[in-house]
Design a protein around this nucleic acid. Sequence first.
DNA 1: GGCTTTCGCTACGAGTCGTAGCGTAATGCC
DNA 2: GGCATTACGCTACGACTCGTAGCGAAAGCC
Lengths: 207, 207
Amino acid sequence: MVGDMHSRSPAVRSGRPRSAEADAAILAATREALVELGWSKLTLGDVATRAGVAKTTLYRRWAGKNELVVDAVAELFDALELPDCGSLAADIEGVVLQFAAILALPEARSGLMAVVAEATRDEALRERIRASVVDRQKRLVLEGRARAQARGELPAEEDPESAARTVDLIFDMVAGAVVHRTLVSAEPADEEWVRSFTRVLLQGLGS
Amino acid sequence: MVGDMHSRSPAVRSGRPRSAEADAAILAATREALVELGWSKLTLGDVATRAGVAKTTLYRRWAGKNELVVDAVAELFDALELPDCGSLAADIEGVVLQFAAILALPEARSGLMAVVAEATRDEALRERIRASVVDRQKRLVLEGRARAQARGELPAEEDPESAARTVDLIFDMVAGAVVHRTLVSAEPADEEWVRSFTRVLLQGLGS
DNA sequence: GGCTTTCGCTACGAGTCGTAGCGTAATGCC
DNA sequence: GGCATTACGCTACGACTCGTAGCGAAAGCC
């Protein structure tokens, strides 16, 4: 899942293979260091020591701190799934609570925003984040939307381009609100907050 | 506006006063370095050189890179004002466009998210961001809400505690959506997007 | 003129960076 | 089994940044 980034075709690759245990140990050590030190004080030498590998091994697999942290944080989002709770409102509440639970982890809080900040000046890093983190979230919006349309809770868009814009908008609204609540306002996105949010999202302010 | 952070009462302070020009030059140099280098590669020595001051002068006024960047970025939000456009929808669109314009600046993009990430592990820094950046934005939500209630566009809350929660929710939804659109999705929050966003915020998804 | 604080400058030890070199370990191919 | 190939651990290195200390000079208040 990680090595694929570096060797697209692991087909004819002679020689000693890379240790998968080392990959897992490095990513776990990175998350541990993120919790204890935060992004700015995290050093690759320290991560190597924690993981029990040589510093040079780290540099052979990742270009730098940013790429390593992206991969380490991306694994946290593997657990994201869209529950089928019977209604659009319940589905939204379920997935938002999952998302909020991940963002409540200190390794996600300090790591995610830092790499997003770095990505403003690094196109390749932005693409890496998109592929391994953002797209996985956006897929949930697409599925939830399709489900709600099948239930008749949402009108079916005929124009596919307009539909894509709507999905992007909803995604930014949902993810943005949870991130802002958790990281900027520094308040928990608990069940009560999620209920209020879902109500506004579905019915608007003027109700 | 900046020195106040360090000396609450500038009353009886004899000796040579601190140069206000130096403050302005340092903050401007910080923004310039943010544009050219980004947050991670920005060094205080480089900022001092750009500003034409000694490195020691920087350390006398700011505790570190984080505090400096917060002050430098905070000045960008001075221009934020709530225009009276006649309707709640128009007011929201106006202020969101202003906010989006600031976030489109490279010095804001690379600086703001980085210090927010650092603030996850630094309570004092979080408070500094809240006081100099976030509260200035939240005030606009309060004003816009009061105006809309005076116009009869929004129902008047009787419970003040519930009203405060609603304001916090709206603030996270508005600011979060714009930030996510601009920094994570890396797409411009242009007029078309703002119109769609305002429509969903006011009327909900199911319309 | 005296007192106080700031300023610019230089220098310093400590820490991190990313890389190179070397000998060893683990695989695929013949 | 032998050989080529790649990964690994280890050490060492120059370059850079950090934050601080010490100094003499400058700029204000009494």
